[in-house]
Design a binder for these strands. Structure first.
Lengths: 191, 191, 191, 191
DNA sequence: GATGAATGAGCGTTCATTCAT
DNA sequence: TATGAATGAACGCTCATTCAT
């Protein structure tokens, strides 16, 4: 490749360092150095350290959303669709551990502007909300308040990815992946 | 003339500021100033900013654990015991919103030494683990891997408190509290 | 002994720490702690850290001067008197290595008020000056300017003690002690 | 437009302030201010205050060594070579009083890392050692232990420069310069 | 676009000293 | 006489950001 694409190098390095050291413990100078560019270059591409962080957050969120969208199916069977979605979402996390770790650390952190975080959250939980409404309409899922279900769903997703990221070998084990989906699905299922 | 108890004033102020501004955005000088003590006094009581943070974390965790212990019952009926525990835990969060917010922000954050975090997590999830094992032995709960269930339980707890903290009026609504427990309990219940 | 004599404990500890760590790197708190007294106690006995240092300096200088005075002889033979003096002075250094180290470090350092240093220097070099004048009058020593000879003598003394302190086994070796005196004496002797 | 060469300005200012106030009593802020640069600039060029000190020490030592090397002659007459060397060394001190003062204060001070000090000392006393060995081989100088002679020589040099620096007018006086060399030379000369 | 020396406000921390007990 | 919690000015150092080249 002839184009060094320094901007991408900065983003990649920032992801690695933000995850391994935290946002505040990572200096712009260290990002620039490890990315092989001058300190000034970073500020050519991103007006500030915060902007770099927000850019990173939105870009990764988009990647995740794209991956999920691409995997959505509508087979007519809601439970099997949900199962497929759940597995796709966890698979993305397993395939992109750095990026998932990034989400775990920064989804609730003040290092990212609140409006950016909410925007990301809503768009990601969007399909889930739609899916749940459908399930309620069909009488398959319990009639709990939608927002409560959405928050619960998000919490279970974070817990599941945390678990499989910490114990990657379990991701190969049918028993564990099955259990993980059951915990998720049975929580919402109509008595 | 009451004891000034400057140490406590420092801890209280630190809690407020760490939650509202984040750990790194809160300077030791601002803690001292708002607590009405000199900067040196803070370092007289806590060797470093990090030690202050760890002390705060452990103290709050202990408070929570004590509150939960105090509320434990053994009625013979596992489900009703679990329900009581679940409500107690969320009630503590609602009664101590600042401290719960603190947990939400720092339970997974690198601002707290990892061994401190893990120690806290284990001791808190301890009773939950015991309760689940009992449920499995009785054939009430599904035979999922224990650690997965524990992580899931923690994730649901964080989601539930997040929800009720953001919508405190819902905590008065029987429908919501009931739904919250159902999500939690049904997730684990034996098919 | 029933009296703990905290003042002396402070002085002893200060000597040890000033020599091993330097004046500025030694905090009054560390002196107090190692001496087994409270920080306030140090300031009861010495109005300030600088006063403690000056007190220490003058006390050690006095000890040295007393030891030298006690060893002075007037045998009628100037050279053998000088030799005796030279050996006594170095012997004191070898017997009190901590105190000699203290001199080496602080005789020329700005940690000690200049008037204190000069006062100490003059009183110590006093006998030397007298002895040299006598030697010049007798035609034994060269007629060099007295102050120059005194400074030279002091420089040789510091060098000799430095050497024997760094190589203590050489102090048992007649060849070395003899050489050390010869260097000193021959420098001044009349061509 | 000449290069600002801020690095040199920092070194020059540090030399002046370290000599006049001492290392610990000189703040990095005061160095930066008097050098006309920002505090950050000092740390841009030197990673720490200690590094600045070490750099200064080695640079000055090198300057001295270069000056001495340049003045070395080999006339065949050892005594006149030694005299030339002795005068060159003292002349350098008189021409660079600040730098000589710096040596007097810091050659034995813990403000400079010990390996830096020793390295400097050895390289400087190197020629002296060589010269003395030659003198002993020729039967001109006494057969005292070499290290003792070297330490003695260093002590006499410090004393002589101290004397002439304190009484600069004496440096013009043939009687004093002659006496100073005699003290040095006769100390070592063979009985 | 890319560079990296320069900036200076702000940080966490130290420590000689005080004083109520 | 002895204590040690409290003080706050001062320190060495960091780092996001700027700008002349």
């Amino acid at each position: 490749m002839s184009k060094p694409d320094k901007k991408q190098a900065i983003l990649d390095t920032a992801l690695t360092l933000f995850v391994s050291q935290g946002f505040y413990a990572t200096s712009t100078a260290s990002i620039a150095k490890q990315a092989g560019v001058a300190t000034g270059t970073l500020f050519h591409h991103f007006p500030s350290k915060g902007d770099l962080m927000n850019h990173l957050f939105l870009a990764i969120k988009q990647e995740f959303a794209d991956a999920i969208w691409a995997s959505i199916q509508d087979s007519g069977d809601l439970k099997s669709d949900a199962k497929h979605l759940w597995h796709s979402a966890i698979k993305w996390a397993m395939d992109n551990p750095l990026k998932q770790e990034f989400f775990q650390q920064y989804s609730m952190s003040p290092s990212i502007a609140i409006e950016i975080r909410e925007q990301a959250m809503n768009s990601i939980l969007g399909f889930m909300g739609a899916l749940m409404q459908k399930g309620q309409a069909l009488g398959l899922l319990a009639d709990y308040p939608l927002n409560l279900m959405q928050d619960n769903c998000h919490g279970q997703y974070l817990a599941a990815t945390r678990y499989f990221l910490d114990n990657p070998e379990k991701w190969q084990d049918e028993q564990h992946t099955q259990a993980s989906f059951n915990l998720f699905w049975n929580a919402m299922v109509k008595g």
